[in-house]
Nucleic acid binder design. Structure first.
Length: 358
DNA sequence: ATAGGGTTAG
C-alpha cells in the first residue's frame, strides 16, 4: 500500500485489525496499532477503536483492551459488548459481569450479544442469584429474542442448578436448533435424568434436526452417567454408521468410561484399538485407567498407567497415576472388596487371579 | 461504495 503512495484508510485499518483478531496475531496487531497512532486517524473513531480493542481481547490481552476501552470518549453498546465477551472468553467472569452491570447502570442500550456474554459468564460462575437477575433482564430487554439468547439462557439455568427453569424455557421456544437440544441433553444428564436425555435425542430427530458430533458427546455422556450400556453402544453405532461421524477422542472417552464402569474392560480396550488413531489421547487412557482401578484389574491398569506416562511424563497427574498404579495393589484389593459388598455379587471376570499379596 | 460484538461437551 505504501508503494502506491496511498495511505491506509480507517477502513483498511479496521479490516486488517479484524484479521489480526481472528488469526489471532498479536505481534502484527501491535504493529498495526503503531501505524494507526502515526496515521492520526484514531481520535474519535468509535469503530476503529472498537476493532482495536477487539483485536487485543481476541488475542487474550484483556488489560490492553481495557486501556483502550477506558480511553474511549463515546462508549457504545458494541464497545461494552466486546469487553464483556472478551472477559467471558478468557474466563474472567467477575470482570465480565462488572462490565455488564456498568453497561446497565449507564443506560447504554443492552444488545442481545451483550446479554449472551453475561449469561455465559454467569453460567461459568454457577451463580443462582445472578442467574435470576439476568433472566429478568432477558425478559425485559430481549423481546423478539433469537435462538442464541434462548440457548444461553437454558444453559445458564441448567448450570446454576435449576433444571426446571431450563425446561420451562426450552418448552416455551418455538424454533429450536441442534445447540438447544445438545444443551438440554447435557442438562438432563447432569441432573441424573438420563432416560429423559434419550427422549430428547429422539424428539430432536423427530423435529428433523441432524445431531452433530457435539450432540453425540452429550448423549454418550448421558448414557455414561446413567449406566445405560446398551443405549450408549447403540448411539455410538448410530453416530458412525447412520450419521457418518468419525469418532473423536471425546466419544471414545465416554464409551470407555461407560463400558469400563460396567466392568467390561475388554470391550473398552477393543474399542480403543478399533480407533487406534486416537490411541495417544490421555483422556481415553485416563478413563481406562480409572475403570481398571475401579474393578481391580492391576495388569491392565499398569499398562494404561505406562501409556499415560509415555504420552506426557511431565504431567504431575500421570506421575501420581504411575506411582499409585505400581504401589498400591492393596488399595485396589480393598476397593474391590468394597465394590463387591455394595453390589452383593462376585465379579464376572474374577480379577482376583492377578493379585499378588505383599 | 467499504468497517466493530455471539451460543453448544468436559
Amino acid at each position: 500500500m505504501h508503494r502506491t503512495g496511498v495511505p491506509p484508510s480507517r477502513f483498511t485499518f479496521s479490516s486488517v485489525l479484524n484479521a489480526c483478531a481472528r488469526l489471532p496475531a498479536i505481534l502484527e496487531g501491535k504493529q498495526v496499532h503503531k501505524r494507526l497512532i502515526q496515521s492520526g486517524l484514531l481520535p474519535n473513531n468509535k469503530i476503529v477503536e472498537t476493532t482495536l480493542l477487539d483485536m487485543y481481547a481476541k488475542c487474550g490481552f484483556l488489560d490492553d483492551a481495557r486501556s483502550i476501552f477506558d480511553a474511549m470518549v463515546h462508549k457504545d453498546l458494541v464497545a461494552f459488548t466486546t469487553m464483556i465477551c472478551g472477559y467471558t472468553k478468557m474466563s474472567r467472569m467477575k470482570e465480565a459481569i462488572d462490565m455488564y452491570m456498568e453497561m446497565r447502570a449507564r443506560e447504554v442500550k443492552i444488545s442481545d450479544v451483550a446479554i449472551v456474554g453475561a449469561l455465559s459468564a454467569c453460567t461459568q460462575l454457577g451463580d443462582a442469584e445472578l442467574a435470576t437477575t439476568l433472566a429478568a433482564d432477558v425478559g425485559r430487554l430481549c423481546r423478539g429474542r433469537g435462538v442464541f439468547v434462548w440457548n444461553a439462557l437454558i444453559h445458564m439455568h441448567a448450570k446454576c442448578g435449576s433444571l426446571d427453569l431450563a425446561r420451562k424455557e426450552f418448552n416455551a421456544m418455538k424454533e429450536r436448533d441442534v445447540i438447544t437440544y445438545s444443551t438440554m441433553i447435557t442438562a438432563l444428564a447432569d441432573h441424573g435424568q438420563s432416560q429423559e436425555a434419550l427422549s430428547m435425542f429422539q424428539q430432536m430427530q423427530n423435529e428433523g434436526l441432524r445431531p452433530n458430533e457435539v450432540t453425540f458427546i452429550s448423549i454418550l455422556n448421558a448414557c455414561s452417567h446413567g449406566g445405560l450400556v446398551k443405549e450408549g453402544c447403540e448411539s455410538f453405532e448410530l453416530m458412525t454408521s447412520v450419521f457418518g461421524i468419525r469418532p473423536l477422542a471425546e466419544h471414545v472417552t465416554c464409551m470407555v468410561d461407560l463400558l469400563g464402569r460396567a466392568g467390561q474392560l475388554e470391550r473398552a480396550y477393543n474399542l480403543v484399538m478399533e480407533n487406534v488413531e486416537l490411541a495417544n489421547d490421555p483422556g481415553i487412557w485416563g478413563a481406562f485407567h480409572a475403570a481398571c482401578r475401579l474393578h481391580g484389574d492391576v495388569e491392565m491398569g499398569e499398562m494404561a498407567a505406562r501409556k499415560l506416562g509415555e504420552m506426557d511424563p511431565e504431567d504431575p497427574g500421570n506421575q501420581v497415576v504411575l506411582a499409585s498404579g505400581y504401589a498400591s495393589n492393596s488399595d485396589w484389593q480393598a476397593a474391590e472388596k468394597v465394590r463387591k459388598m455394595i453390589s452383593g455379587k462376585g465379579t464376572k471376570r474374577s480379577p482376583g487371579c492377578s493379585w499378588i499379596s505383599g
